Simulated scan of single mutants.
Amino acid sequence: MQASVSPRPINPWLYLGIPFITVVTLVLLEWTSLDMDLANLFYEPTAGGFIGRHSYLLENILHDRVKQGVILFGLLALTGFALSFFWNRVAGWRRELGCLVLALALSTAFVTPLKKVTQVQCPWSLTQFGGKETYSKLLEARPATDKPGLCWPGGHAATGFCLFGLFFMLRDRKPRLARVALAVAFVAGSVLSIGRMMQGAHFLSHNVWTAVFCWLIGLGSYYLILYRHATTKLPAVERSAA
Rank of each mutant, 00 (worst) to 15 (best):
R95N: 05
R228G: 04
L226M: 08
S4P: 03
I225K: 05
G92A: 09
G74F: 01
T46Q: 14
W209I: 04
T112D: 03
G49W: 07
K233Q: 15
S136L: 04
P123V: 07
W152I: 00
L226C: 13
M197H: 08
D37F: 09
R173L: 03
K233L: 14
M197K: 05
L75H: 01
E140V: 07
H206N: 10
G48P: 08
A144C: 05
L150F: 13
Q199R: 15
V180K: 03
K147T: 13
G155K: 08
C122V: 05
P9L: 03
V27P: 12
F203R: 09
L29D: 14
G17M: 10
R171M: 07
G74V: 00
S4Y: 12
T25Q: 01
T232V: 06
A236L: 11
P113T: 07
A109D: 04
R95A: 09
E133V: 00
A141G: 04
R179V: 02
T127E: 14
H156A: 01
L83K: 03
A91K: 13
F161G: 10
P148R: 09
K132M: 09
P19K: 03
L75E: 01
L41T: 12
F161K: 07
A77N: 02
S4C: 03
L41Q: 13
S205R: 03
F86I: 14
M1W: 10
T159H: 01
I61N: 00
T127R: 15
G17R: 10
L14P: 09
T108R: 10
L78V: 01
F42W: 13
T118M: 13
